[in-house]
């Protein structure tokens, strides 16, 4: 059975979606990710969608769900790498993903996650300096 891999990197979980998802795969990812947030007690989730050419209302809803569910488990979510054509399409579709934090790429997403964690007064457990 196909699954999207979730990597633990320090205090974060990193998911790189390399294929266009069908609905079951997206639902499995939602469930796996939320379980793993709980099991690993990470404070941040980074989802890289730079290789995703289509985000429709279902996929958009899953991204929003992941962000809301993770927040309930005390973790922040940042979606990175959205293609401009996908951003245009999502807004016209009527799904601007208001509850989801975004950054242009993985590096900027990491910075954003770290600053969100600092803001929440969370300990730096990943060994990275937040002043770099």
């Amino acid at each position: 059975m196909e699954r999207i891999p979730i990597l633990k990197m320090g205090a974060f979980l990193l998911v790189t979606i390399q294929i266009d998802l069908y609905d079951r795969l997206a639902l499995d990812l939602e469930e796996d990710l939320v379980k793993m947030v709980e099991q690993t007690s990470v404070k941040g989730v980074l989802i890289d969608i730079s290789a995703v050419s289509i985000v429709d209302s279902f996929m958009g809803r899953i991204l929003g769900n992941i962000a809301s569910m993770s927040k309930l488990l005390d973790a922040q979510t940042v979606v990175v790498g959205m293609q401009p054509a996908v951003a245009i399409t999502l807004v016209e579709l009527g799904l601007p993903l208001n509850g989801v934090s975004t950054a242009l790429n993985v590096e900027k997403g990491m910075h954003l996650l770290r600053s969100m964690m600092d803001f929440n007064g969370t300990d730096q457990e990943d060994g990275y300096s937040s002043y770099d």
Binding site: D23, S53, I54, V55, D56, S57, F58, Q83, P84, A85, V86, I88, T89, E92, L93
Partner: peptide, 17 residues
């Protein structure tokens, strides 16, 4: 163009669902 392609395929995805 890429933007129109993305809109068309997204629309197709909604309708097929």
């Amino acid at each position: 163009g890429l933007v129109n392609q993305t809109k068309l395929i997204t629309a197709a995805s909604e309708l097929v669902r």
